[in-house]
């Protein structure tokens, strides 16, 4: 269950929107941030806050690739597999990430830090190949830079977890 304060804040967000539906992505992202992923409970809560049915929320939740309806790691890595990145070595980048993390595409590392997902264009074609880790976008990647980024992100996550204790 989400805290009352968050619920009230989101209800105010919905009230300020011209149509409830346009606030749906904001609401889902906030609940996802709260739970770590958009749980079934989160879908029910989103529906209640938005005045929509659970089905209507699910239609949107399953359409957007950055709304996660299954558990994910602390940082989700989206590696672009669209045409520009593919032409600039996106496939090797994805293979390198998978190899480095020791997981397949769509999987989460055993320490729960990273989930690796393909993604259809991050709007960063000029910087191809590109990927997103958490909320941060990275471009012009090669395997050395990608490995270095993973180490940095892992350290940051560990720091957050330490801080959280």
């Amino acid at each position: 269950m989400i805290p009352e304060a968050l619920k009230n804040e989101l209800k105010a967000r919905v009230a300020a929107a011209v149509t409830n539906r346009e606030a749906a992505v904001d609401v889902m992202k906030r609940l996802q941030a709260h739970y770590g992923w958009l749980t079934d409970e989160g879908v029910h809560e989103s529906a209640e806050i938005l005045g929509m049915t659970t089905l209507q929320v699910e239609e949107l939740a399953t359409f957007y690739e950055m709304i996660y309806r299954r558990p994910v790691g602390r940082r989700v890595i989206h590696v672009c597999d669209s045409i520009s990145c593919w032409a600039m070595g996106g496939e090797s980048l994805m293979a390198h990430m998978a190899g480095h993390l020791g997981i397949g595409v769509g999987e989460t590392t055993s320490d729960g830090v990273f989930t690796l997902l393909p993604c259809c264009c991050l709007g960063n074609c000029g910087e191809a190949p590109t990927m997103m880790i958490g909320d941060t976008l990275y471009g012009r990647l090669d395997s050395a830079r990608a490995g270095q980024l993973l180490e940095e992100e892992r350290a940051a996550v560990m720091g957050e977890m330490e801080g959280g204790r």
Partner: peptide, 19 residues
């Protein structure tokens, strides 16, 4: 109706209910 619809995208489109 608002309890039946289309979920997912691309090759994984699914027509059904939330549950």
């Amino acid at each position: 109706g608002s309890d039946f619809g289309v979920m997912g995208s691309a090759g994984k489109v699914y027509y059904g209910r939330f549950e």
